Computed example of a mutant assay.
Amino acid sequence: MSSAEQNLITRLRLLPVVLGIGAAVLASGCSAGQITQTDTQVPAVNGSMGTVKQIAVRDVQLAFPAGKTYFSKGESASLLLTIANSGDATDKLVAVSSPQFGSGAQIVGDASIPGFHAISATATAVTPVSTTSPTATSTTGTSTTGTSTTGTSTTGTSTTGTSTTGTSTTGTSASTTVTTTTSAPELPIGSIQIQLVGLTADKLLPGQTVQVTFTFANAGDLTLNVPIAATPHPRDDK
């Protein structure tokens, strides 16, 4: 047998060994490291999610509009979400705002989140209170001394139940969006309701998102792009 034939037989005998080693390397590469199929997977939910410090906000959605397929200008929308606190100290959701809802937000219930606990927000039909509207004040060249006014308006300024003594304000202007927190003893422990008030666009359709900022007492701000939840009604295939 020639040397060339011997070399060919040797290579053929080593081929299964080489193939086996290569298969083992590929298998180990698919199950570990940064190229795994699971390193970029996210939870199978429709809503947005984000984390700020020890606070995690999960599955944030706008509740599907009742009795219609979109939100109209001026309407309110309920937020659906879960807030989890992975820290030791209690935190609290103190404000919610959105540039697409010009009249602020209304939080109903106790929005405190104890350490290693979670709370959830469910849909609400609560009527927005008047204090959720933006408050704009402008006073020019006025002076009030020892007066008390209730429900009066002067030069674009509205004052309710306030008392001012010896003050003078010239050329000032302020605009504030208020988040109103309302107690609701009927809500279960760990459950709140959040309502964005006063849609500024003509329509808000499924598939569109709105920017919502959540402000926590300790963790700070978290801003998310929030979609509309899927319709609860069954699809008509006819």
Rank of each mutant, 00 (worst) to 15 (best):
G156M: 04
A125H: 10
V108I: 13
P206I: 12
A125Q: 14
I113R: 12
P128R: 11
T200N: 07
A111F: 01
T132D: 04
P128I: 10
S133V: 15
T176S: 08
T181G: 08
G161E: 09
S175E: 03
G166R: 13
P128W: 01
Q195L: 08
Q193I: 02
Q193S: 07
S153G: 11
A121W: 04
T162Q: 14
T165N: 05
T154P: 05
I192Q: 03
G190S: 09
T139Q: 12
S168H: 02
D202I: 05
I119N: 02
T137H: 12
L196E: 06
G198P: 04
Q100K: 13
V126C: 02
T157S: 05
G146V: 07
T179P: 06
S120M: 09
I192D: 01
T154W: 06
S173T: 15
T169G: 03
T155D: 08
T159K: 13
A121K: 10
T177W: 00
G161K: 11
V197N: 06
T152L: 05
G207W: 11
G161R: 13
I194A: 01
T132P: 08
L199V: 12
I113S: 05
S148H: 05
L199H: 12
V126H: 10
Q106T: 07
G151L: 10
G198I: 08
Q193M: 06
A123C: 07
T155Y: 01
S163R: 12
T172C: 00
T140R: 09
T124S: 15
F116H: 15
S130W: 04
A174I: 10
T149D: 02
S168N: 11
V178E: 02
T132L: 06
Q106I: 03
S163N: 12
T170I: 09
T144L: 09
V129N: 02
Q100V: 01
T135S: 15
G146W: 05
S138A: 13
S173K: 10
L205Y: 11
G171C: 03
V178Y: 06
A123S: 14
L199F: 08
G102F: 00
A201I: 02
T172Y: 03
D110I: 09
S138R: 15
G207V: 12
T157M: 02
F116Q: 15
I192C: 00
T155W: 01
T144G: 03
T149G: 01
T135E: 10
A174H: 11
P185E: 12
T181F: 00
A174L: 03
V108S: 03
S143N: 14
G207A: 09
S112T: 15
I189R: 13
T181H: 13
Q193Y: 05
S103C: 08
T177C: 00
T142K: 11
G151P: 02
S120N: 15
S148G: 10
T172S: 04
P99I: 12
L199D: 06
S148Q: 11
I119S: 04
T124I: 07
S130N: 10
T167V: 07
T137E: 05
V178I: 11
T164P: 03
T150L: 04
T132I: 06
T122M: 00
P99L: 04
A201P: 04
G146I: 06
T181V: 13
S158T: 15
G166S: 13
